[in-house]
Design a protein around this nucleic acid. Structure first.
Lengths: 260, 260
DNA sequence: TGAAAACGAGAGCGGCGCTCTCGCAAGTCA
DNA sequence: TGACTTGCGAGAGCGCCGCTCTCGTTTTCA
């Protein structure tokens, strides 16, 4: 029932996926361990529930933020990236559940996670579709990466994806979206999992910004030069904070150390 | 002793980090579980040993491949990326140990893993240093991303890194190296951990090639047009297979499914 | 009111990490 | 040669885990 999920979420957040135990959940619930098996078939089942929930949590967060961002495709992409990063730093254990090492011996059943799991990348291609339709894809030198440059099998796969999701995008742009999609999560992974080194970056958010800018440029999204005029000063109303110039970062979120 | 490490490595490869148990190692060793505690302080200690070993395994593999690659910086980077990907696909469990979810409640002691863990990125900046010294960094439009564009704290951090490793590279290029470093492992992560979808890519290697090309361009490495003349045909002697045109990929390496 | 369903408790199985004690064998030294 | 230290594996044991099965109680509903 709902209590099990709630306590499971708490344990997941505090001890990580590997530390999630049905016995501990039962204990917190004030119930004997065998009782929870009435509601949850196994530990893996509970994990699956939490995974789907986390995917949807991240997905709806991203969708909300993107929808609230200004129409400029770069700003929308930056908002998407910020949302992913912010969520990951806020919920490192749940993030790790989604984008870290798969739990060994078990893969979340695809039919239950696919829809939820693709919401971020769907939002990404949504941004690109909008940009493409409005001829806002500008950064890419013409002909540099046309479809005929794609290797044959990849071209076929991309075509299948285009049809599957009814994308009005050229294949090469879909390919770039996938590259940048993995690049985005690579950057978040490195930050959340501490691969940039403990003390090497005092403001990881600035590093992230740089990476995001590169990714955006790869997809042909260029940063708008603040439009024609615009009143100087703060408050150009939009999502939480659109990359480019942004305030203090949620950086200092340390996952381990200095605590346990 | 060595036997423990060997069997530990086998278990790690077959069951993953979470499935590594000292009791099972002891069983395989034909010895009672408490006996292995003579040699290994704890399970985490064994994990640390295996982590360092894996970092060095990957690191020396990368260094070897890069050293054997042609002098062209793009080819060297492609060789590095190929080496990382190949190793990861060959040893998904060990790769996950290094670049997946950190084992909860435990972080490999930095003093024992830092040297080994940085060999790949050191190799990467080595390639860039060589390229920079020989004025082979060409892809980046002049002035587009000069150092003065970097935000202040990041600039300071990069400067510290430059000094720390005695790099003869401009800060903006160091920043790009870090972005591409995370992007590279993002791509490998997605492939190894199956985030590209089970059946969506028939040849993940081609997708990887595309990503690598983008990353290379971000660092100002452009693919050499096969030099002035060069005999056409195969065999331009070098590393295993340098990105660009390459044979069948080690793609079909499935990590789970269809087996257990 | 009585049958049926829902549900929690408890015992139990095998496996885990880890500790502690004991006994045995090899090496050390007078 | 005999006493002694040292190294090392065996075994029992603690508390944890996932999971199963049975049994008794409570709730629901006709």
């Amino acid at each position: 029932m709902a209590d099990i999920l709630r306590i499971g979420r708490e344990h997941l957040a505090s001890q990580g996926a590997a530390g999630l135990s049905l016995r501990a959940v039962a204990r917190d619930l004030g119930v004997v361990s065998s009782a929870v098996y009435r509601y949850v078939a196994s530990r893996d089942e509970l994990l699956t529930l939490l995974i789907v929930e986390a995917y949807n949590d991240l997905g709806s967060r991203v969708e909300t933020v993107v929808a609230a961002a200004p129409a400029d495709p770069f700003a929308r992409f930056a908002a998407l990236a910020d949302a992913v990063r912010g969520w990951a730093l806020r919920e490192p254990a749940r993030y790790a559940l989604l984008y870290g090492t798969p739990v060994p011996g078990y893969q979340a059943p695809a039919d239950r996670t696919n829809d939820a799991g693709t919401r971020v990348v769907v939002a990404l291609v949504g941004i690109l579709s909008e940009a493409w339709a409005t001829h806002a894809i500008t950064g890419v030198p013409a002909g540099e990466d046309a479809d005929h440059d794609l290797p044959p099998r990849l071209a076929a796969d991309l075509e299948a994806i285009r049809l599957d999701y009814a994308l009005a995008l050229p294949s090469w742009l879909v390919a770039r979206a996938m590259s940048c999609w993995s690049g985005l999560f690579g950057a978040v992974n490195f930050e959340v999992f501490g691969h940039f080194g403990e003390a090497t970056l005092t403001d990881a958010g600035e590093m992230f910004d740089q990476t995001i800018r590169l990714l955006a440029r790869q997809m042909g999204l260029v940063q708008q030069p603040e439009l024609p005029v615009g009143e100087d000063g703060p408050g150009r109303g939009g999502a939480e904070h659109v990359s480019g110039l942004r305030g203090p970062h949620p950086s200092g979120a340390r996952r381990r150390g200095a605590g346990d």
